[in-house]
Write a protein that binds this DNA or RNA. Sequence first.
DNA 1: AACAAATGCTCAACCGATGGAGCATGATTG
DNA 2: CAATCATGCTCCATCGGTTGAGCATTTGTT
Lengths: 336, 336
Amino acid sequence: MTDSNSSKRPTIYDLAQIVGTSPTAVSSVLNGSWKKRRISQKLADKVLKAAQDNGYTVNIQASVLRRERSNIVGMILPKYDNRFFGAMAEEFETRARAAGLFPVITCTQRDPALELSAAREMLSYQVDYLICTGATDPDQITDLCRGAGVKTLNLDLPGTKAPSILSDNFTAARDLTRVILDACERDFGVVEPLLFIGGRSDDHNTRERRRGFLEAHSERSISVPDERLITNGYAPEKARHTLTALDHVPHGIFVNSTITLEGVVFWLQSLPPERAAEIRYGSFDWDPFGALLSQSVGMVRQDVGALLDLTFQTMQSGQDAAEMQLVPCALVMPKF
Amino acid sequence: MTDSNSSKRPTIYDLAQIVGTSPTAVSSVLNGSWKKRRISQKLADKVLKAAQDNGYTVNIQASVLRRERSNIVGMILPKYDNRFFGAMAEEFETRARAAGLFPVITCTQRDPALELSAAREMLSYQVDYLICTGATDPDQITDLCRGAGVKTLNLDLPGTKAPSILSDNFTAARDLTRVILDACERDFGVVEPLLFIGGRSDDHNTRERRRGFLEAHSERSISVPDERLITNGYAPEKARHTLTALDHVPHGIFVNSTITLEGVVFWLQSLPPERAAEIRYGSFDWDPFGALLSQSVGMVRQDVGALLDLTFQTMQSGQDAAEMQLVPCALVMPKF
DNA sequence: AACAAATGCTCAACCGATGGAGCATGATTG
DNA sequence: CAATCATGCTCCATCGGTTGAGCATTTGTT
């Protein structure tokens, strides 16, 4: 039934002994190449039963060591602390398994040094492919991996040396801006430049979103003064302090991330209710609670499924060129 | 500078050739055992430089295969979609790296079959230790791993065959219930049984929280009718439908998870404002947005840091007995 | 019956890193 | 000056699974 004496895990050599055959036969039965190797059904059955009975699990390390491909796909991810990255991780795992691959994810805390050492760790695992999500310096990682013959792909933030897949930040930001402008006009009869808050000006996505933000304003011939564009980081406290310190906050606010939104909402709650009621905001990235506040007029929800479909498609096609592919976002409107 | 010809990654054999020494010397320099092996500083420097120049990374597969310990610690996790599990994953990775171990996390979608196959996969990776977070059937996994000589630990949900580390759900739920009862009395002058919503009655944590909930009521001699205890799952839509269908919802609601809270808040937003203003809720598990709604009177925030400190401590002590250790939670009160 | 072809399996080398055993040197000691 | 010891390194077997080559034996063909 179970293993008799040894506390160690059974190997193909143990199973071979039990069944009375060679390790080669056992290996080929267990890895599925037995048909090609002309092993009889009868022997295969015996081996499978023995494996079952003895709780055999293949030693991936040994297996990968011998083969040329590891079937391991790595993903590095900045954080697990918001819905977007959480969904990316889950969907990545699901798709990898569906494709018969082994996913390995590690999170890098938005720290460039950690990103690099994480990439190195992935190489140690002999990953066949590395997906760099939201990496600060993806090109550096691409270089590192290319030296080891491993292809990479940049997800969510673009690089210049590997394929990049990201959301169409510009279009989504433009559409979201329109919605906020509409809401301000509808609810308060006001046509004025919105406040853009959150993100960093050196960040590709922030730049694209700001471009969409400005585009929607210029469509309506609204000019946006520089002080309405505040990109001093993602941190919630920063946003709250900024808003508190501002002597005039417009009716409409474009919030550049859910993490910044925390600060905005905190600030909102500190206002007298009649003042809070005069605010409308839209946020880039979706959060179930953020969407439910009454001042929320829309949220951009990135299409994680499509991003990852395209990622796997690109990966499996072997495409290696530094092309950028954009995926449309959904604009989620309040349900009531 | 970089590797000259081969697209393959350099091995210790390549470096040995480059430096003009033996693979053993290279290996011992790179893994730190060179002092003990009486390799000269001069040779060590040459090897390190060659490794640097050629972008060498150790082949974990080969290394693990040869050694008896892998230094890999596995964690299985139900989901990445809320702050609690996200924080668990991040803190686990941080602590593992700090201890010189390699973390591998995989998420199992609350699916018992996936949990088991994930555990099997972890064994394939030769993990030295497996942490089962929120597993539906942890004992089965413990059995599987024990057969392979791998110790496990149950985190967040207890098992009966391995050490279990979890939050003190009872105390936290009792304290949270007190706070909600207080709020209802203070704000509305009402003393009545609260509504308990969310979770499953076969789930250990839900049972403990319900026990705390009932304890707080009985302290005040409030009896709770059965229909006030609704544990028909965590899904947000379920909670919303239940609340909508209820002909009388009390002023105070005990929400058993942030995922259920989504449904509660959705329902709240659908009420006329004057009706919504008559509700107070507290929630088990913390979410930044959930905490900011005006009806929120408190949230239990599990102490992820302490949970993982204790986890690593237990792991490193080698303690193997099926003991249960409880970690106190924090009760986060609204800030305004 | 003679030969070819298919069937069913085993052998042995190998993947890359590791660690015990061992072998030259040069330095130290009685 | 032989014996002892420390120093600095190399050799080789090994971990467990994979794969090309190869070897009996059986089956099919003319």
